[in-house]
């Protein structure tokens, strides 16, 4: 029968209300924020930008932060392209104010109001945020104006729906950086802001960006990613379980994230980025933190 029942009407109405509630653009927060350049450490900003932003924004071909096609994202969501974050006024972030940069990094709301949910860092400290912005404004060759257009993000229906389900993360201020002597807190801070939890937890759709430990299957691996051949790659389990890194030493961990070979000397390839710019005490804190979290049995 072609009769539209009450049930159908109710479902349609609910769907309409649900989709209306989900937005893809948001108002600017109009933050009162400018960086104190005299306090900023541009060299540290470069290192932080390399390890936190460069993985997605640095293009080996141009040798600049001109953006790339993120082929590790599930194709069902569409084509995702990271932005050109050089100082170019039209193609890059040359027209962003400090407040707009801080807003997009912490909350995901871009200058034009679009939500960019892939890169939200709500817990990034004031100190690191300041250094990163100072670096993006610096005369470093990797961020000089470039009109390279990395292409456009083209989401599928599913991808659009997934974005609509995402929300801006809150703007918290001030946020202090944990002391390196507080090893567990410092290690967690790095696992959070290097976005390790994003790929190494159960699913991108089930991560908690504000309290990362509440992410489903936190650091237990099994998230579906893709290599550059389009082949599915499951993220490894990094919890202290026998199916994870229980038997790994700190040296094994360091070799894995700086040189790309695991405990068994098997190559770790794309989409896992390498972090040769991390300092030894940072790698150590990350490892100690990972050894402290709840073990999850998940043999990948």
């Amino acid at each position: 029968m072609n009769v539209i029942s009450r049930k159908h009407v109710a479902i349609l109405a609910l769907s309409f209300v649900f989709l209306s509630a989900c937005k893809m653009t948001y108002d600017s927060l109009n933050l009162d924020y400018t960086i104190e350049e005299s306090q900023a450490n541009v060299n540290e900003g470069k290192r932080l930008t390399t390890v936190m932003c460069g993985v997605c924004h640095y293009d080996q071909k141009t040798g600049q932060m001109t953006g790339i096609h993120m082929v590790d994202v599930p194709p069902a969501l569409g084509k995702i392209v990271s932005s050109n974050i050089t100082q170019h006024k039209e193609k890059g972030i040359g027209n962003y104010t400090d407040a707009e940069l801080a807003q997009v990094i912490r909350t995901g709301i871009a200058k034009d109001g679009k939500l960019i949910p892939f890169m939200q860092k709500p817990n990034l400290s004031d100190e690191d945020l300041r250094d990163i912005i100072a670096f993006l404004r610096s005369d470093d060759p990797t961020v000089q104006p470039s009109d390279v257009d990395p292409g456009s993000t083209e989401l599928t229906g599913l991808g659009k729906m997934a974005i609509r389900m995402e929300k801006p993360t809150p703007w918290n201020h001030p946020i202090s950086k944990p002391s390196a002597s507080d090893t567990l807190a410092f290690g967690k801070y790095l696992i959070d802001n290097l976005a390790c939890y994003d790929c190494h937890s159960k699913s991108f759709a089930k991560v908690d960006k504000i309290n990362i430990e509440k992410s489903k299957g936190f650091m237990g691996g099994g998230n579906k990613l893709y290599n550059k051949l389009g082949e599915e790659v499951l993220s490894p389990n990094l919890t202290p379980h026998i199916t994870g890194i229980k038997e790994w030493s700190e040296e094994d961990f360091k070799k894995a994230i700086t040189k790309g070979f695991n405990k068994d000397n098997k190559v770790i390839s794309y989409p896992m980025p390498l972090y040769p710019d991390l300092k030894d005490h940072e790698i150590s804190a990350m490892f100690i933190y990972l050894k402290s979290i709840d073990p999850i049995k998940n043999d990948i």
Binding site: Q60, K259, G260, F261, I268, S269, L274
Partner: peptide, 15 residues
């Protein structure tokens, strides 16, 4: 490769 500013390629030395 890191000596050539390629930070994303595994280091094969010794492997």
């Amino acid at each position: 490769p890191q000596a050539y500013d390629n930070k994303q390629m595994p280091v094969y030395d010794g492997m």
